[in-house]
Design a protein around this nucleic acid. Structure first.
Lengths: 211, 211
DNA sequence: ATGTACATACATTCACGTATGTATGTATAG
DNA sequence: CTATACATACATACGTGAATGTATGTACAT
């Protein structure tokens, strides 16, 4: 074959990323070969190696292709100052996160790959750090929301925990939910929806449920 | 070399498992080679292949070597009927679980391998199911403990959530804690101990903290 | 005409599985 | 008790496929 226009080349690049996502999800990152990715994209290894130096670089590209838009989306809800009750912001942000996971196969696949189909060693050790960062930043933002809630008197008296402690608990909750969800068969095992679990989690720190 | 007594052979087998744990943890499961495992154990691939059919079988052996004792240990605490307040049993079981993780490098390594250094595809897809099972069983036992707590009146009135919902939340919490912990640098990022996080989590469902 | 965007071809490495060798433990016959 | 026969517990050697990276070919956009 021959040279394409820049636009066509960019589409080819995106095709390779999409193919990588499918192949990584099917066989796991380390067992996936550049040949498989190329075939999935309807190309040859030559094309793949032209666009990406090696598998690691391809992996990073696939990750950023999806992650950045997602964090922006969640932060918009979480940081919305307009909310009357910051607890509602936290609840809405959590629900939006998991709603997106259900609705977008692409995002779900990438998360799936990063959690269950990738080994965080050697070159991929730094992937882990970058994969953690959104979570850690999420924690900080949740804590600020809880702080606003405390100031506005939205937290029940006698709760015993401050914003930091509540945020930590919510963080662990969200992290756990994500992993349990990706492990599969969530609804079958729990017989409860993710949405309800989030409602319940937040209910534990709302005024209305106190005696 | 030549034949050893059965006892010596069993020690060799254990050495291979120990070596596998070290190598898997260093390079990840899929990038680890039987040659590396053999060298780590001071043997050759012949010995490894004699004791284990392939890498998958070795992986399973390594897992069971550690997991079964752990679940027994945790269950003993969780199911102790002697406890006055079942909430204390849950709290103690959680604390024990994470205490063991801190104190036993072996257990921590195996968990680390299973969470961060293994790709759950193809032959390892069933590993995931088996890895999930202890968690699911843990969920069921925690729910029963919450049920006992409800019957004994240990749950605060007006809490709004039943035993099942509380158990789900605790399950997500524990799962999240485990993953956050294994991701590393826990204390640096949170500036709080695991023990305190568990105390706080349980405090959210204790009578004494209500207004 | 030149560099771009690929395809093709090639060399190398590497891990796997297996086949085979071998020395020793162990059981049994006499 | 001891000699022999067989099983065991490895080490060694070999063949094979597969993936990688690179080098080279080629057609087209600019």
């Amino acid at each position: 074959m021959a040279r394409k226009t820049k636009e066509e080349a960019n589409r080819t690049r995106q095709q390779i990323i999409d193919a990588a996502r499918a192949v990584f999800h099917r066989h796991g990152v380390s067992r996936s070969t550049m040949e498989q990715v190329a075939q999935e994209a309807g190309l040859t290894r030559g094309a793949v190696y032209w666009h990406f130096k090696d598998k690691t670089e391809l992996f990073f590209a696939m990750r950023e292709d999806v992650f950045n838009p997602l964090t922006v989306r969640i932060d918009a809800i979480l940081l919305a100052e307009s909310a009357v009750d910051p607890l509602d912001s936290i609840e809405a942000a959590l629900k939006e996160l998991f709603r997106v996971l259900e609705e977008s196969p692409t995002i779900r696949q990438v998360l799936d790959i990063m959690v269950l189909r990738c080994e965080y060693v050697d070159e991929f050790a730094r992937v882990q750090e970058e994969a953690d960062r959104p979570g850690v930043e999420f924690l900080a933002k949740v804590e600020k929301a809880y702080q606003r809630a405390a100031i506005q008197g939205c937290l029940p008296p006698g709760l015993g925990l401050g914003p930091a402690e509540l945020a930590h608990d919510t963080w662990a909750f969200a992290t756990g939910m994500l992993h349990v969800l990706l492990a599969g068969d969530f609804e079958r095992k729990l017989r409860i929806s993710v949405d309800n679990m989030i409602t319940n989690h937040m209910a534990l720190r709302r005024e209305i449920h106190r005696a």
